[in-house]
Design a protein around this nucleic acid. Sequence first.
DNA 1: AATTCGGGGCT
DNA 2: AGCCCAGAATT
Length: 396
Amino acid sequence: MNKQQVKFNAEIENYTRDWTPEKVAAFRSDFLSWYDEEKRTLPWRINQEPYSVWVSEIMLQQTQVATVIPYYERFLEWFPTVEDLAYAPEDKLLKAWEGLGYYSRVRNMQVAARQVVEDFGGEFPTTAEGLKQLKGIGPYTAGAIASISFKEAAPAVDGNVMRVFSRLFGIDEDIAKPSTLKYFDAVVRHVINPERPGDMNQATMDLGSSICTPTKPQCEECPLQSYCLTYQQGTQANYPVKLKKIKVTHKYYLALAKENTEGLFEMIQRPSEGLLANLWTFPLVEVSESEYNTYHNEWQTSESDDTRLQNESLLTKVQAEMPEVVWQKQPVGEITHVFSHLKWHVLIVYGHQRASVIQETNERQLWLAPDRFKELALPKPQEKINQVLKKARYLD
DNA sequence: AATTCGGGGCT
DNA sequence: AGCCCAGAATT
């Protein structure tokens, strides 16, 4: 055993020292009684089938309960069994996930569904270790499914659980660091109820969402008040400790709303890897920040001065690159969209194709009437662009 | 260990 | 305008 392990063991021992078997038993009893009384009725709590539990847990990654519910209901209608999911066409998968974000989740789910059908005889592995072999299932999701569906006393540590347990035990490790997970794993293992592990894990979720909230925790109503170290010290507001802060990069685009003589718009399917993989948008031309600002300023200036309607710089750019399109002289509008680590700024430019042009087409390109946009999986920024165009009556 | 993956809801 | 959320894969 090396130095770090000794230190780790000592810290866990320090956290759990006064958690005697009697205290652990009382904690379990109080916590589960509260859960039995107060638990939320959620669609994925109707049964403990691994397939539906799995679907809910993947959807709930980084996504809030209220957002997930309608997606969950529809997903189980479209893909009632793991076999249905395993061989569904990808456009249907993406449509089912449209607007949920983190689209690789649903692609990974299909990979995992095929693993279940082809490698595991149609049955999910029944342990956390086994479940982790499936694509998209990591430590958290494996623990959640194993505990809920198969009654394994496995921790399921997410941001919620780290918040609750950091306050309960005064764990002041930085939860932004991946290595911190092991502290919570060890402490949860010390108190989890082997008879109702799934309920223990879900009780922690419910407590974290209703009482032990990020700001202003409702400690006066908390069933675990008498067990909570930081409540007794009055320091619960300092937990959890999170140090790292994310930086946002800005990206600038022109979105080309290109309409042909038949009233169809050009749609492009994004690359199969990376951000918004395989979703559909208008053609996007990335421009530099300064270039974008030039177009933007010229647009705003001309709007306040209607004697000058030409946006010379923008017109020069797009007209030169795409002479087969008659570009409107000013942008129709602008949208912005914030992702977790970047922000898009998008100027929307409208143009109609000259009648004589022969349209080139390829695999990842479509010409589509506006009333059929809904057949494609569109990311949020494209939805916003559509709203702007609709409001300006370009999609009638 | 750090970065890359969406989007909504809250204060 | 930040911060948070029932995280995992990739580099």
